[in-house]
Simulated assay, not measured.
Amino acid sequence: MKKLFIGILILLVFLMGCNAEDEYESPVYMGEDLTIGVIGEKPDVREENVSFHNMSLEELEYENQGISDEYDAIFIMKEYLKQAGENKYSKVYSELKLPIFFIESEKAYVPFIYDDITYDEFPDVEDQMYISGIMSEGDGRFKTWGFGLYNDTKTETNIRSTYSSIFEKIDSVN
């Protein structure tokens, strides 16, 4: 019985050690207050100086001039990526003058900037980022970003740390 207990204890220590290697907690974003429009469910973040406001793709399409004044960035969550990747929205993204982030896109940002291919038509991208971002520079050019998870491990800690990095990027762009 004692050997079994020691074996279990060693296994627990090993597993706890492995878990620690797969997580990284970055510093919390402490910059300017940010207001972010979200299409989908609001993400769970650590920051208190970041507020999220639900919106729809239709609002993005028909009110895009005012959106740039109202928000610091737009997040499009995973459950809306197919719809957001429809051809008609590529023009919207090219006209907005603020960062747009596609959460958990398996296709990176590519199907969102070209009007001749949809999200479903574009193949999955190997070694993709957890979150891809774009910002129009005009004339069909975009700044692009990719944010991965620490050790490519999907944990709450790693996801929250990735969001903190994105908030830093939004702050630096604004």
Rank of each mutant, 00 (worst) to 15 (best):
I113E: 03
N151R: 15
E70N: 09
P43N: 08
H53Y: 07
K107T: 05
V45P: 00
I159Q: 14
T155D: 00
E61A: 15
E168Y: 10
F167C: 11
Y109E: 04
F167H: 09
E48K: 15
I113V: 08
L15F: 11
E104A: 14
V28K: 15
E95H: 04
D127G: 13
E58T: 15
S51D: 07
S68A: 15
E59T: 15
G85L: 01
W145F: 12
D115K: 12
S26D: 04
E21S: 11
I100A: 07
G31M: 04
F147N: 09
N87Q: 10
L11Q: 06
R141Q: 13
M77E: 07
S132F: 05
E58K: 15
E70S: 12
T155R: 08
D139K: 13
T35N: 02
T157K: 13
N151V: 11
G66P: 00
Q83G: 02
W145P: 09
D115P: 05
F101D: 03
K3F: 07
E59V: 12
I36E: 05
G7R: 11
G7T: 10
E106A: 11
N174Y: 09
Y93E: 04
T144S: 11
P111D: 01
T35D: 03
P43Y: 01
M77Y: 01
E86C: 02
E48D: 13
E41L: 00
I103N: 11
K107F: 01
V173R: 15
M30Y: 10
P27C: 03
V125C: 00
V125Q: 04
I8C: 10
V92R: 02
L15N: 09
Q65I: 10
N49G: 07
E48Y: 08
F75R: 13
E121P: 00
I8Y: 10
V45Q: 05
